[in-house]
Amino acid sequence: MFEAKLIQGNLIKKIMEGLKDLVTEANFDLSPGGVSLQAMDSSHVALVALMLRGDAFENYRCDRPRSIGMNLVNLSKVLKCAGNDDTMTLKADDTQNNITLVFESQAEDKYAEVQMELMDIDSEHLGIPDNTYDAIVKMPSAQFSQIVKDLSSIGDTVTVSVTKDGITFSTSGDVGTAHITCKQNTSMEKEADHTTVNLEHPVTLTFALRYFVTFAKSTSLSHQMSISLSKELPVMVEYAMGDMGHIRFYLAPKIDD
């Protein structure tokens, strides 16, 4: 038996916002420690890794590890039945091929129960190495989102360059070229507004911009996000959900032939 209750049920809605444009179906791995997911996009150049710790839930019970396959488009439809302030309880009986989602209003005056069929999905798990990155930049997630959206109307690829002075996003297209630099800045009162650059080595990498736009759909999960870069390795874009878990996106760089 698997059962887990989230007081802030809309966390799942927010997570789905970031997932559903990247992957259409995925296995959720349920274990006594929590819920995780690893999935590649259809062109196999990007990977998303989600981790929600068991103690992020109000009541968490997972009697045995199990993978449950879900169509994320269908899951998003089901989640429309949940109000933004509703609690959300997920239940999956080991003997059944479905999941039950229960949405309850905080005032306990509305109760919705939806059952959704599970599916068998073939998926390969990749071993993500624990990289030491050349550069790690933390910045407000809303700022990152705005930058990649703005640049995506100018070009298709983005060159990300990190030096001790800051991070620069560059693109070019028919319109012209654009460079946006964010310097390290820790003068604001709120830490979530800071931009910090942790640099081992200066690094420059080029990526398909549309993936960054997709990753930025997780903006509502966290005020801060981080970009971790190493020479000729996939970038990691992370949205940490406090001590509840994280969603991490990996994207292969474009490398000169």
Partner: peptide, 14 residues
């Protein structure tokens, strides 16, 4: 031209 390898070619099997 720029090439983009699959993510699996970087990470491989666990």
């Amino acid at each position: 031209a720029m090439k983009q390898r699959s993510i699996a070619s970087f990470f491989g099997s666990p």
